[in-house]
Design a protein around this nucleic acid. Structure first.
Lengths: 197, 197, 197, 197
DNA sequence: CATGAATGAGTATTCATTCAT
DNA sequence: TATGAATGAATACTCATTCAT
């Protein structure tokens, strides 16, 4: 009895995802050149060759991970938040609460962020890809900040620069979470103070 | 006729330092596994073999760089500042101004900081060394923060955690300076807001 | 579908042995420092990397070869011979005949002996291992010699020293066989004369 | 006051000889490829560069050592001995006594012999050089053996082959002397028995 | 499909040789 | 002349990738 084609496809997709997710975490901890394919395979619990059934090369795997990251990261939330008819201060409260919660709970969130560092640290060329997305996230954040400045709740200064500061701190604590044994997460108040008066 | 021993020693020391400093910058930009010894030598402008006259291996060179960093990083400034009989707010102003100036001017300052990331990202064992020092830097900063809390100029919260936040942001912008083509440095006000009310 | 584990193990063992045997002959002809891993691999007919799948380093391979040699060298024959109830002279005749036959036929026998020279010539530390074994071979030979001295067929003198002389000559002709284009093997009579009257 | 040219020449010759002799011993213990020029220089107690003042290359040094060896080795003794009007047995007694004495006393004698092994083990091409000389030594020895066979004091067999056997044993004990910590030298009787009845 | 043994291009390291002092 | 620091070609070793099973 041959497997049904759909079932087959399903199995393929699930293995591909497994590799993608585990690799993301592994790469985020060890960097691109710091990761050996043999170690990665062992870590995932599969044979070395198996990775090459799903991905053409280490390079491609790394890029696919980034595509996945950018797909997952939900900009939507910020986008929606930006256009809601509520004070900027509340928007920032809400965003901060959500971000810290996600950071706390989801390993992948921290991994995602760490990988962007790796990108920054190791790759010079494919640089643009990661930045593209970020700018969008930053844009919406900047809108909220601008609103807050008008409302008097946010400090003055270039909104984009402030947005970048806010996300930079998020990124900083994502790294700390991933790489430090015991680290106290930043408090909502401290994080908000990057932009709130 | 043998070369004069003193002169010889002098040459050796100067070459060793040259390798150490140049390597620091190179490693900080490319990471440990991302650095090829042949490229490094070319970058320094010496033969590959020369590095091995002074260091046993890539690994050892990397460790010696870290020893050097920890020796150089001057805690003194913060130490002295902490014990001055002036308001904490002024101390933080002074410190912030100095740190941002150094960050702006001295490549090595940013390099030093970036290397600590590499350490964190790539090496698991020799981790402690770097942390030891940091805690001292953090301790003095925490003292200033504590003083500020009493004086009412600094936000409430665990002083050490706040010190860590402050230095974390410094570290974040050091990375940005090293790895981003055009980046606006954080302003003194924004940096101070990590701890000041 | 994974390969069957048994078959896999079998393949590994056979490749390991192939490398071990071929390397033994190659090292014995070229010495340790005279052997390049790339040449060795080419000579065996495998990729350079393959050797490192089975052995950690050139050094380790060399040591494993010696372990193998000491396992293979059959002391048993001499041991059995020593305890047989026949005249020493006949034992020596038998032994000499066998040894010369093996020397003539089996390349590995000569290789084994040549490698012990290499050991002697190049390695200072791991020296003991080889010697341990030899002393056993020498002990049994010495017993036969002692018996012969009582029977009047063997020359007088320290039996161990005479045993060492006998095996030394065997060793000498093993070297000659390996390294000289055309060499006449020693005759049984000449070899026996080291100890027989 | 400039040094007199003769004195200068004298100094040069003496340094050259020092290098030559020490190198001979060092090469004989470590082999050609097993010898590092830096180690050799340290062993001699001079700078690495100094060797290159006197010899063009490692290769040339090695060859010069061989030339020196062949110059030193006194074939004369055997040559003279061969033509004396005394019984072969006495010639062999005399030769054996002299050879063992020299082996006992003079390190260079053993070194010389060991180097011929190295030659055999490592160099395929320059092979002829060493052999040329040996054949002369062997020829005269063979003459003595032939005389002994006529006189009935020497065993029958190809005289050259027997000469080779005799010198082979000498060579064997030279190696033992060089490479074994405590080794009992072969006795004159044992050595003579290679050829004497 | 899944595997892990085999591979060789690529990288770290050594060592004979040069050369400024 | 004597030196030893500097060099790069040669060599040991690694690791992404392939492929027979």
């Amino acid at each position: 009895m041959p497997k049904s084609p759909e079932r087959c496809e399903e199995i393929r997709a699930s293995m591909r995802n497994k590799i993608l997710h585990e690799s993301m975490l592994y790469f985020s901890k060890n960097g691109f050149s710091g990761t050996k394919m043999s170690d990665l395979a062992k870590h995932i619990g599969i044979g070395q060759g198996t990775i090459y059934v799903y991905f053409q090369s280490k390079e491609e795997l790394f890029q696919e991970i980034h595509k996945m990251i950018n797909r997952e990261k939900d900009i939507k939330q910020v986008k929606v938040l930006a256009s809601l008819p509520i004070p900027a201060k509340r928007k920032i409260h809400k965003l901060t609460k959500d971000v810290l919660l996600q950071l706390e709970k989801d390993d992948r969130f921290a991994g995602t962020i760490a990988l962007n560092t790796q990108m920054l640290l190791e790759q010079d060329e494919d640089y643009s890809a990661g930045t593209t997305y970020q700018s969008e996230l930053y844009t919406y954040m900047a809108k909220i900040i601008e609103q807050g400045q008008k409302e008097g709740s946010v400090v003055s200064g270039n909104p984009l620069k402030l947005a970048d500061y806010y996300w930079g701190v998020v990124y900083l604590y994502a790294l700390k979470k991933l790489f430090t044994i015991k680290y106290e997460m930043i408090s909502a108040e401290d994080l908000e103070r990057t932009v709130l008066k």
